[in-house]
Write a protein that binds this DNA or RNA. Sequence first.
DNA 1: CAATTAATCAATCGAGTGATTAAATAACAA
DNA 2: TTGTTATTTAATCACTCGATTGATTAATTG
Lengths: 196, 196
Amino acid sequence: MVVRAELLAAARQLFAQQGYAAVSTRAVADSAGVNPAMIHYYFGSKQGLYEAMLTDTLSPLVERLGVILAADDDSAAIRNFLKLYMHTLGANPWMPQLILREVIQEGGRLRGWFIQQLASKGGGRLTQLIEREQAAGRIRADADPSLTALSLVSMAVFPFVAMPVTREVFGMRVKEGYLERLVAHTERLFFEGTSP
Amino acid sequence: MVVRAELLAAARQLFAQQGYAAVSTRAVADSAGVNPAMIHYYFGSKQGLYEAMLTDTLSPLVERLGVILAADDDSAAIRNFLKLYMHTLGANPWMPQLILREVIQEGGRLRGWFIQQLASKGGGRLTQLIEREQAAGRIRADADPSLTALSLVSMAVFPFVAMPVTREVFGMRVKEGYLERLVAHTERLFFEGTSP
DNA sequence: CAATTAATCAATCGAGTGATTAAATAACAA
DNA sequence: TTGTTATTTAATCACTCGATTGATTAATTG
């Protein structure tokens, strides 16, 4: 099963970097140091390899999201979500790339499963939490909950997508301490921007 | 030259939707109702077609950005930037997709030219404007200017990238009036979140 | 008008694609 | 050991890819 794992790892890196169509099965096999026929043996097809990789990679994220956002009694749920989400993306640079490629693609390959997960455990739940904070008077009532959730996700995800050009475009040195400063900055901007 | 223009239009739509590698020259030619050899005739290669299309599509955006952000004497420059940028992206749905594909790609095809433009006329300039607003006391001084610019761009761009899944994930109906509400919401969240 | 250039087409080249097979090897149970 | 299954390899199939050619037509020019 070591071959299978190496194929998944190589696939994750290459597909995240270059996208599905740009990566050949031979390239994945070579990168994994394995015979190309192994893809057919373990996953049936290139498509099968991609889907297995995507499920493998994104399932933990979705699951963690669900746990955090399900905490109904925790009044800091939104803060926790923001921190966990950004730290997870920061620690796994391929995640935002894979997610975004799936989202952009018209006929996304795992759109059905993944988007459904994002909706039920992600955006929808986050919107509910924001509505609850509004009811509790900690977020101003005239803010549209869905738009507010969208803004929060935007600020949480986009910086990692833009990471490859952050240095050049925004003149920032992305090194030690950057993630912490980014999270703190985002947290403050969001909560001050939505306070009553 | 009508053939050339039709090739550019078809290329823009297909490349934005599916990405460079996933689109064959034959697909572009067919979509344009033209012989595949015309790509070689007018653009030399698939690469040439792509670069011509990208320059054609993104140049106006970069130029408009430059004009807005160059307005040194206009204290509403940031507001103007936000509005113009979001309305432009809203009116040209392929823009955010093309931009993002370029940004994500490790060896982006026009990275050199495009990122340089974004840096000199976009992010860098925006950061300067934020610093000026801080000096004027309209944005709190303890906010990192670069991170603040990044947050603003995040909220301005990401919603359009996420458009294909906005309805499902955030439970929003994206129809008439959405763009206006989104811009107003973003504007308020940003300026209240950064006020002293 | 003839001569030249621009534009378009059908056809095809070699390279690389995803996929598959039959044979060889490794791992393991009896 | 032997028999059986799981894994791996080399080789190759049918196909699509980007690119290009030579021939042909349309437009422009002298």
